[in-house]
Amino acid sequence: MAANELVSQDALHRQLGLSDERLLDMYFMMVLARKYDERALLLQRAGKINFHVSGIGQEAAQVAAAFALQKNKDYFLPYYRDYGFVLAVGMTMRELMLSLFAKAGDPNSGGRQMPGHFGDKKNNIVTGSSPVTTQVPHAVGLALAAKIKKQSFVSFVTFGEGSSNQGDFHEGCNFAGVHKLPVIFMCENNQYAISVPIAKQIGEARIADRALGYGFPGHRIDGNDVFEVYRTVKEARERALRGEGPTLIEAMVYRLSPHSTSDDDLAYRTKEEVQHHWKLDGINRLREYLLQHSLLNDELEAEGLKKIQLVIDEATDFAEKAPYPRPEDAFTHVYGDEQEGSTNAGQ
C-alpha cells in the first residue's frame, strides 16, 4: 500500500488499534535495531568483537510482529536475526551489547553463545541454538503446555525460509496441526540461505502454502508493510487463544546485509539487486507514513535519533568495560545438581 493512499483514509494504524504514540514507538524500535546492527558491524570491523550476524532488512516485520504479541505472557522463540524482535519484547540495548562482547552479564548465555543466540527467561525468550529450526518443535511444546495447563498464552517462533526445509519444521507444524495448538509460526523469508537463493531452496515458491497440508491457515504477507504484519500476527494470536490452532505466516523480506561479518554477498548477488531492495525497506515505508500523517517531523526525528545514538553509545561503552566471565566459569551449569567447582560435571 503506497503511503499517499493512506492519507485519504482514516489512519490505518488507528483502525488496527495502534495509537499514534505506539506507532511512533514501533518506528523508533525498528530504527534502534537497525542502528544496533550497524554499530555491531563497525565494532567487528574495528576488531572489538569477533562476529556479528545481521538482521538488516527484517526489522519492520520483527518489530511489528512483537507489537502484536503480549510481553511477559506469550513465549518467544526468535531466530538469530531477530534483534528488532527481542528489543521489542524487553531485551535492553545493554544486554544485546553484553552478548555481542561475550561478557559475563549477557543474559542470553553469560558470554557462552555467539551473539544472536537469544534466551532470556525474564522476558519469556526461550534459549536457542545454531542448528536451524530446532526451535520450531520447542514452540509447539510450549503451546502444548499452554493447552495442558489451560493457560492463555501463545508461543511465537520465527525462522528463515532456509529453515523451512528442515525436518523439524514439518514435524513441528504437523504436531501442532494435530492438536490445534496455540502457536504462531513466522517465516522471515529473506530470500537467501547464506548464498543459496530461494529458487534453489524450494520447488514450490510459497512457504505459506505448506500450511494447507497441516490443516491450518498460511498467509504470505509483505514483511515490509508493518500494518499487514501487525494485523496478521494479531489475528493469528486471537485465533490461537480461541482454541482454533496454529497459523503459518510467511513474511516476505530481503536480507539487505551479507549473511554475517564472514560473508561477501556480492560473490553471489548483484549490487543492483540489493539496491532495488533498499528502496523497499520497511523502515523507510513507515517513516513515509508517519511523515504523511504528521506523526513525525524533523524535530521529533532528530530527537529520536539522538536518543538512540546515546543509548547505543552508552551500551557499547558499558559492555566494552564490563567484565568477561571468569575462566573457571567455562565448567559450570552442566547439570543443576553439580557440585561447586566440579570440572568433570556429575562425577
Binding site: P137, V140, L142, A145, F175
Partner: peptide, 16 residues
C-alpha cells in the same frame, strides 16, 4: 515423528 516427540517434549519441559 521422533524429532517432534523429543523437541515438543523439550519445549514443554522448558515451560516447567
Amino acid at each position: 515423528s521422533e524429532s517432534a516427540i523429543a523437541g515438543v517434549a523439550i519445549g514443554a519441559a522448558m515451560y516447567g
